[in-house]
Structure formats: structure tokens, C-alpha cells
Amino acid sequence: MQMLIKTFHKYSGKEGDKYTLSRGELKELLLGELGSYLGSGKDNEGVEKVMNDLDANNDGEVDFTEFIILMGALTVACNDFFLDVKPEDKPKE
């Protein structure tokens, strides 16, 4: 939990409200922290879709609650992916 909180605040507040992520801050966070999970780092359309999906109150910013929804959804998606991977195909730790 602490890592999620610290990561959010590492990017929030660079532009405007220190308790929310602007579009630019969200893009920087997605590319910097989750690029390997989200595919192409140059996909502005994808970042825009994530922003629109997360911004539940349509204020143009993502607050911590909206951010946690993304983290939960990504965690579920990763879990579902690994459930479908055969044991012999799983990366060795």
C-alpha cells in the first residue's frame, strides 16, 4: 500500500493540485511505472482512453481513488493472464 501511495504522490502535484494527476502527470506515471504492462509507450490514444475511463467525475484529473481503481484492474488482468499460462510456460523466478 505504501508503494502505491508513494508512487501516486511522486507524480501528482507537478501540475496543479498536489492531490490529483493531470493528463500529463498520468501519462508520465503510466509510461514511467507501468510501461511494460501497457504496451507501446508512444500510444497517446491509449493514455487518453485510460484517463477518460478513470476520470469518473469528469474533472480532467485523476484522484487517488480513481488511480486505485486502475491499479486494481491491472492486478486482476495480470492475475487472469498468469492463470491462463501453462506451468511450463511461466517464467522461472
Rank of each mutant, 00 (worst) to 15 (best):
G46I: 06
L21F: 04
K49S: 01
G13C: 04
E15D: 14
D89I: 07
T75Q: 05
L29D: 00
K14E: 13
I69S: 08
L30P: 00
L83E: 04
E48V: 10
S12W: 12
P91V: 12
G24E: 12
R23W: 03
Y37P: 00
F8L: 04
K90Y: 05
L34G: 01
L83P: 01
L21W: 00
D43S: 11
K27G: 03
C78M: 07
G41N: 05
F81G: 05
V62R: 02
K92M: 09
F8M: 09
D89V: 08
T20W: 01
Y11Q: 02
L54D: 00
N44H: 12
Q2K: 11
K90W: 09
Y37N: 00
S40W: 03
E25H: 15
K14D: 06
L70M: 12
V85C: 11
N44M: 13
K86I: 01
I5V: 14
L4C: 10
E61D: 06
D63P: 03
V76N: 06
E33P: 02
P91G: 12
G24V: 02
E28K: 15
L31Y: 05
G72Y: 04
V85R: 14
F67H: 03
G24C: 06
T7H: 04
S22I: 11
G32Q: 09
N57P: 09
V76P: 02
N79F: 07
D63L: 06
D43C: 14
S36T: 12
F82D: 06
G46S: 06
N57D: 15
L29C: 06
V76C: 05
I5W: 08
G41Y: 04
S40D: 15
V76E: 09
K18W: 03
E33Q: 14
P87S: 10
A56W: 09
E88T: 06
M3W: 05
E33F: 02
D80C: 08
A56Y: 11
E66F: 11
K92G: 13
N52I: 11
Q2H: 02
V76K: 11
I5S: 12
D17M: 05
D59S: 11
C78P: 01
D80T: 11
Y19P: 01
V62T: 04
D63N: 15
Y19R: 10
Q2G: 05
T75L: 09
M3G: 03
D80K: 15
E28S: 15
E15N: 14
T65Y: 07
N79G: 06
E66P: 04
I69K: 10
K10H: 13
K42G: 04
D84W: 07
Y19W: 13
L54E: 00
L30F: 00
L70F: 15
K10A: 09
Y11M: 03
Y19N: 15
G39A: 07
L26R: 04
H9D: 02
N52P: 04
K10R: 13
T75E: 02
L83Y: 05
E48N: 12
I69L: 07
G46C: 08
N57S: 14
N79W: 08
K6S: 10
E61F: 12
G72Q: 10
S12A: 15
E93I: 14
G41I: 00
E61G: 00
F64H: 06
F81V: 13
M3T: 07
D59N: 15
L4E: 10
G41W: 00
